[in-house]
Simulated scan of single mutants.
Amino acid sequence: MNAYNISNRFGRIRQALLLQKIDCFLLSSGANVSYACGFHAPDSYLIASQKGLTIITDFRYAADFRKMAKPPVSVAEINGTVFKTIRGILKKKSLKTVGFESRHLAFAECQALHELSKGKITWIPLKETIEPLREIKEDEELVNIRKAVQITLRAYDFIEKKLKAGMRELRVAAELERFIRLAGATSASFDIIVASGPNSSYPHAQITGRPMKNGEPVIIDMGVTVNGYKSDLTRTFFLGRINPVVRKIDTIVLQAQQMAIKAIKPGVLIRDIDGIARNYIKDKGFGKNFGHSLGHGVGLEVHEAPSINGKNGLRLKKGMVFTVEPGIYIAGSYGVRREEMVLVTSNGVEVLSGISRH
Score class of each variant (00 low, 15 high):
E304S: 09
K51H: 10
E141P: 10
H358E: 13
A3V: 13
K248N: 14
V324W: 05
Q50W: 00
V321A: 10
N199E: 10
L294M: 02
A173P: 01
G166I: 11
Y202G: 00
V336W: 08
G52F: 07
S74P: 00
V82H: 03
S200W: 04
G348R: 11
L126C: 15
I242H: 06
L343G: 04
Q150T: 03
I276H: 08
K213N: 03
D274V: 01
V143S: 03
I270D: 09
P203T: 06
F286K: 05
E135K: 14
C24V: 10
C110V: 14
D191Q: 09
V98L: 08
A112H: 03
I355A: 04
P306D: 07
L46K: 02
G88D: 15
T85G: 11
K284T: 07
S49H: 01
A195D: 10
L18Q: 14
D272W: 01
G267T: 08
K162M: 12
H292V: 02
D272G: 00
A155M: 15
L300Q: 04
V321K: 07
V268A: 11
L239Q: 10
T54E: 14
A148D: 06
A256K: 05
E109Q: 12
M222S: 11
G80W: 04
V253F: 09
K120S: 15
E169W: 01
K93D: 15
K282P: 00
G209N: 15
A185N: 03
I136H: 04
I242F: 06
G275W: 05
I151E: 04
L176D: 00
L254R: 15
E141F: 06
Y45I: 02
A16P: 02
L90Y: 07
R247G: 13
C110R: 15
I308Q: 09
V245C: 03
G228W: 05
N144C: 06
Q15M: 13
T81F: 12
S201K: 06
C37R: 10
A155L: 02
N144I: 00
S231Y: 01
K284V: 02
A76F: 03
